[in-house]
Design a protein around this nucleic acid. Structure first.
Length: 578
RNA sequence: CGAGGUGUAGCGCAGUUUGGUAGCGCGUUUGGUUCGGGACCAAAAGGUCGCAGGUUCAAAUCCUGUCACCUCGACCA
């Protein structure tokens, strides 16, 4: 490819907060079409194609069969699984010309079961895995961050079908390893897998693959002692309460206009972990109220709350209507008609400060068993920094941010049962197959690589995914010698299958180098009147680890060897995965 | 869905308060000089001012409606 013909404008100005979005916009990789909807230019599609190729190889390697599901599906298919009604407005619904309800695919469990159900009716077909790489549309309420969180995106999704839980678990492990290999091969061996909540997908065991970075929208809990890792949504919250020797009497104190835990804690000079706060939610279906009492320094994990009350909830709007005094809610003397839950973070604690259900007053010396009774303690909190690890029980929990680039689920029979998919077992019974499903966000992975591998000038694409392998900068290509040498090298490299980008424009050196930095090609060859005088080309790598002169007449061989070495370095990491 | 903001040339913006010839920078085109980290000189092209309606002799500017995008929140495999 010649840059003089390459579409996509590169420019200097910073445009966004998130660096991958910034660099990929500045580098002419993509162009926004609408909110959370992008077109990709050639540099991006070339990266995407390479990532897809790696994914295909690894999926095929664990027995996958590539298929293709439709983007548009009739609503009736989604009614079979019950998700047409259970999923909110992120599922894009519309009518076709005959008035039939249709949906845009946001995930393809229904399509996978539909595809397999009439062609896998006997146990001899099992196990099998089908996968596709295709466009998904999720009408996210708020897209942001360039390709990290979009509404339309390319995803690899795979679905496996099994005749026993043991077989699913064994395949799940294989897929886990294939995922690690994929991330290593695209240059992100640092991606980790964490336990996750399975949410709307159903099923029990699931993992998410996370790239740890401050801009990540997911929160990850890790144990620095035993290696326990989990999405905070799925992590048990265990905190320590050291009881005081003496139980203080329950005493009402005036707290004036102070209502938040920070204010009360500061005013009464009590640490946050000696306070009991109330958080009010409402159920989405009937607007009934739920009050959760939780230790002041612990946040509510809404995923756990939803799971506990078996329904959608949202933070309460008009608390006064329920007979609650906002800001001074406490368990003692609470006269509200609503569900009251106690988080486990309060268990074993003594002498808490809590609201007195009266404007301007709180209690000190609140002891739950003595002053309220013994509630059922439920785990509804978010794990906190320094909390207790659910696995090794040490106080070594750390909290970080991460981008979810992939996930794997043990689905069970949720879809095969609801959609009536069965196979004949050796005993002649009709049985629902057990499913697993496995996703990777391809576009998000591109942005994640950029996020993890860049400097102040642009992306540093790993050679396995780089849009081109070699970038030739022909400085002063108005001189015949430079032009001839650059064209010769360009042709010779392409003749042996190397992907080359040739900057054949007559622009200043600085302009060329800046564009080259933004395009992030791993190997750069500079040809100029100066280098030609010495019979050499200058070779540098985008990561700045190599800067050397190479003999012009052996340049092709030299470059070919370097590419092989760079590829081998990355694949070596993937091959070392056990 | 809630709060705030912005729509004017390919990109970034001024002009709107107080209605009266459509502006600036970058980029683009042409010619020339330069040229190893975003060069310089000269000339030129390029806009139904988001859209619809209204007020007015006259609307980018005032009024009404509407759409899109951005930020924060809610939400989210």
């Amino acid at each position: 490819m010649r840059i003089s013909k390459l579409l996509g404008e590169r420019f200097k100005e910073r445009a966004f907060e998130i660096e991958s979005q910034n660099l990929m916009t500045r580098g002419g990789y993509m162009k926004q079409v609408g909110n959370g909807i992008y077109s990709l230019f050639t540099p991006a599609t070339r990266i995407q194609r390479k990532i897809e190729r790696i994914i295909r190889e690894e999926m095929d390697n664990i027995g996958g069969q590539e298929v293709l599901f439709p983007v548009v599906m009739p609503a009736s298919l989604w009614e079979m699984s019950g998700r047409y009604n259970s999923i909110g407005s992120e599922l894009c619904r519309f009518k076709d010309r005959s008035g039939a309800d249709m949906v845009l695919g946001m995930t393809h469990e229904e399509a996978a079961v539909h595809l397999a159900m009439n062609v896998a009716g006997t146990y001899t077909k099992y196990p099998f895995m089908i996968y596709q790489i295709q466009t998904k549309f999720r009408d996210e309420p708020r897209a942001r961050g360039g390709l990290i969180r979009v509404r339309e995106f390319t995803m690899k999704d795979a679905y496996s079908f099994h005749t026993s839980q043991e077989d699913l678990e064994q395949y799940y492990e294989q897929c886990h390893k294939a995922y690690q290999r994929i991330f290593a091969r695209v240059g992100l061996p640092e991606v980790i897998s964490v336990l996750s909540d399975s949410g709307m997908m159903g099923g029990k065991v699931s993992h998410e693959f996370m790239l740890l970075t401050d801009i990540g929208e997911d929160t990850i809990v890790m144990c620095s002692d035993c290696g326990f890792k989990s999405n905070i949504e799925a992590a048990e919250c265990i905190v320590e309460n050291i009881p005081d020797d003496e139980l203080l009497p329950l005493t009402k104190v005036e707290t004036f206009e102070y209502t938040t835990i920070e204010e009360i804690s500061g005013f009464l000079k009590v640490p946050m972990n000696k306070t009991c706060k109330a958080v009010v939610y409402q159920r989405n279906d009937d607007d009934s109220y739920i009050i959760v009492f939780i230790r002041g320094d612990v946040e509510i994990n809404e995923v756990k709350l939803r799971n506990h009350v078996k329904g959608q909830v949202h933070p309460a709007q008009n608390v006064e209507m329920a007979g609650i005094v906002a800001g001074t809610i406490g368990p003692v003397g609470l006269k509200a008609n609503c569900t009251v839950l106690f988080d486990r973070s309060l268990k074993g604690g003594t002498n808490f400060v809590c609201g007195a259900n009266e404007e301007g007053y709180h209690y000190t010396g609140f002891n739950i068993e003595r002053d309220y009774g013994t509630p059922e303690y439920i785990d509804l909190g978010k794990a906190i920094e320094g909390g207790i690890c659910p696995k090794c029980k040490n106080k070594s929990i750390t909290v970080s941010n991460g981008i979810e680039v992939g996930n794997i689920f043990q689905l069970g029979t949720k879809y095969t049962e609801s959609m009536g998919m069965t196979y004949d077992s050796p005993e002649g019974d009709r049985v629902n197959p057990i499913m697993g499903c496995y996703g990777i966000g391809v576009g998000r992975l591109i942005a994640s690589i950029c996020e993890a591998k860049h400097d102040e000038y642009g992306p540093i694409w790993p050679i396995t995914v780089a849009p081109w392998q070699v970038h030739i900068c022909a400085l002063r290509s108005d001189t015949e010698e430079v032009k001839a040498a650059a064209e010769k090298l360009y042709a010779e490299l392409q003749n042996i299958g190397i992907e080359v980008l040739l900057d054949d424009r007559q622009v200043s050196a600085g302009f060329m180098f800046s564009d080259a930095d933004l395009l992030g090609v791993p190997i750069r060859v500079i040809i100029s009147p100066k280098t030609l005088q010495r019979g050499v080309f200058e070779l540098t790598t985008r990561d700045k680890s190599i800067k050397e002169d190479i003999e012009a007449n052996s340049a092709v061989e030299h470059i070919d060897n370097l590419i092989r070495k760079l590829v081998a370095d990355i694949n070596g990491v993937a091959d070392s995965i056990k």
